[in-house]
Every structure is written in structure tokens, then in C-alpha cells.
């Protein structure tokens, strides 16, 4: 498993770790039932503090992506696709809000914006 974190990013490191692991779970690189490295070995290998990796795992657990089995380890959970999709939709919503705001500031109509989205969507 590869995890890339940036020390200069404005995103907290625990969040970067969380997102990296999450995307590996969603993409299937990490499979259901697979054991994740312990918080201590992950901290050591990423050269971050133990509290940071602990936070990342706690958040992943809260969101249902992993589960901790006491004195055994942390395992990848079965993905709740509905939840994962909802989360992605939320992110898209935020991005779209920004685009809409920008459009409004620049007097670009709803129709123009919709057309633009259709064109871009077809291109992909």
C-alpha cells in the first residue's frame, strides 16, 4: 500500500491519511476483511505521530470504512456503497456551488452553465 502525504498542505495530516486509505478502499485496492497496519507501525513508517494515525483510523471507523477488533487489529469493512456515493455527491455539490457562485458573479445564465456541464460531461 502506498500513502502519499504532504507536510506543506493545508489539509491536516490525519485527514490526508484518512482520504488516502478511503480511496484505496473504494477503488478496491484494499479489500473487505484485509488488515490495516497498526497505528504504531503506520506512524513509524509515515514518520508522523501516533496521535495522527490514531485520529485517522478513528475517523475511518466513525465513517464505517474500517472496524477495530480489540487486541487483534483494524480491518477493512464491507463498503456501504450508498453512503460512499452520498459522500461523493456532497463533494460534487460543494464544487458546483463554487462554480454557480462564479457564474452568478459574472452574469452567466443557468442555461449557459447547464449547457457547459452537458458538453463537458459528453466529452469525458
Amino acid at each position: 500500500m502506498e500513502i502519499i502525504i504532504s507536510n506543506s498542505s493545508n489539509i491536516p495530516i490525519y485527514e490526508q491519511i484518512k482520504e488516502e486509505v478511503k480511496s484505496k478502499i473504494v477503488s478496491g485496492e484494499l479489500e473487505e476483511g484485509e488488515m490495516l497496519p497498526s497505528i504504531r507501525s503506520l506512524a513509524k513508517d509515515l514518520r508522523v505521530s501516533v496521535i495522527t494515525t490514531k485520529n485517522a483510523y478513528e475517523e475511518l471507523e466513525k465513517e464505517g470504512y474500517v472496524k477495530t477488533i480489540p487486541s487483534k487489529g483494524v480491518y477493512v469493512n464491507k463498503i456501504n456503497w450508498e453512503l460512499a456515493k452520498e459522500e461523493q455527491l456532497k463533494k460534487i455539490e460543494t464544487l458546483m456551488e463554487r462554480a454557480i457562485n462564479m457564474a452568478k458573479i459574472n452574469n452567466i445564465s443557468k442555461k449557459e452553465l447547464k449547457d457547459l456541464i452537458s458538453v463537458l460531461y459528453e466529452e469525458e
Binding site: 507536510n7 491536516p12 495530516i13 508522523v48 505521530s49 496521535i51 485520529n55
Partner: peptide, 27 residues
Amino acid sequence: LEHIADYITFINEGKIVLSKTKDEIID
């Protein structure tokens, strides 16, 4: 410390001015 410390305790002129987890500070 920015890499590996869990807690940071900062002393100035004989007094502790700050003692927190490093993530709380950096984030």
C-alpha cells in the same frame, strides 16, 4: 518535532505557556 511528536510542551522564562497535542497546534 513537527514529524514525530505527539505532544508539545513549551516553556518560556520558567513557565509553561503551552502544552497540547502537536496536531491541535499544527492543524
